[in-house]
Computed example of a mutant assay.
Amino acid sequence: MRAYLEVARKSFLSNLVFRTEYFAGLLGAIVTIFVNISIWRAIYDEEGTLDHLQFSMTVTYVILALSLFHIFTMDEYVIEKKIKSGLITSDLLRPISFRLYTFSYHLGGLVYRIILLLLPTLLFYTVVYKILPPFSWFMFCIFLISIMLGYLVMYSLNFIIWVSAFWFYKTFSLITIKETAVMVLSGAVIPLWYFPEWLVDYIKLTPFDTIFFIPISIYLGQMPAGEMWQSLMKQVLWLLFLTVAGHFLWKRASYKLVVQGG
Rank of each mutant, 00 (worst) to 15 (best):
Y4C: 07
F12D: 06
F12K: 05
L13A: 13
S14Y: 13
N15M: 14
N15L: 11
L16T: 03
V17H: 03
R19H: 08
R19E: 07
E21I: 10
Y22D: 03
G25P: 01
L26H: 03
A29C: 14
I30M: 12
I30S: 03
T32M: 14
T32N: 13
F34M: 10
V35Q: 02
V35Y: 08
W40G: 05
Y44D: 07
D45I: 04
D45Y: 10
E46C: 00
L50P: 01
H52P: 01
F55I: 08
F55L: 15
S56Q: 11
T58K: 06
T58L: 15
V59A: 13
Y61M: 09
L66N: 06
L66S: 04
H70N: 11
T73S: 13
T73E: 13
D75N: 12
D75S: 08
E76A: 12
E76W: 13
Y77F: 15
E80Y: 01
K81W: 02
I83E: 06
I83P: 04
I83M: 11
K84A: 08
G86C: 06
L87E: 15
I88E: 04
L93Q: 10
L93A: 13
P95D: 08
F98S: 12
F98I: 12
F98V: 12
L100T: 01
S104R: 05
Y105M: 10
L107Y: 05
G108D: 04
G108A: 10
G108V: 04
G108C: 08
L110C: 05
L110K: 03
Y112I: 04
I115Y: 03
L116K: 03
L117Y: 01
L118F: 05
L119R: 02
P120R: 01
P120W: 01
T121I: 02
T126S: 14
T126E: 06
P133V: 09
M139I: 08
C141A: 15
F143L: 05
I147L: 11
M148G: 10
L149H: 03
G150A: 02
Y151M: 07
Y151S: 04
V153F: 03
S156Y: 03
S156K: 04
L157P: 00
I161F: 12
W162P: 00
V163T: 15
V163K: 05
S164Q: 11
F166A: 09
F172G: 09
S173H: 12
I177A: 13
I177W: 10
E179A: 13
V182K: 06
V182H: 03
L185E: 06
S186D: 02
V189Q: 06
V189P: 01
P191C: 05
L192G: 05
W193S: 13
P196F: 09
L199H: 07
V200R: 11
D201E: 14
I203A: 09
K204I: 08
P207W: 00
D209H: 11
D209S: 14
T210P: 00
I214A: 10
I214D: 03
I214N: 01
G221T: 02
M223S: 07
M223A: 05
P224G: 07
P224V: 09
A225D: 12
A225F: 14
A225W: 12
E227M: 07
M228G: 02
K234L: 11
K234G: 08
Q235A: 08
V236W: 06
F241P: 02
F248N: 08
V259K: 09
G261P: 01
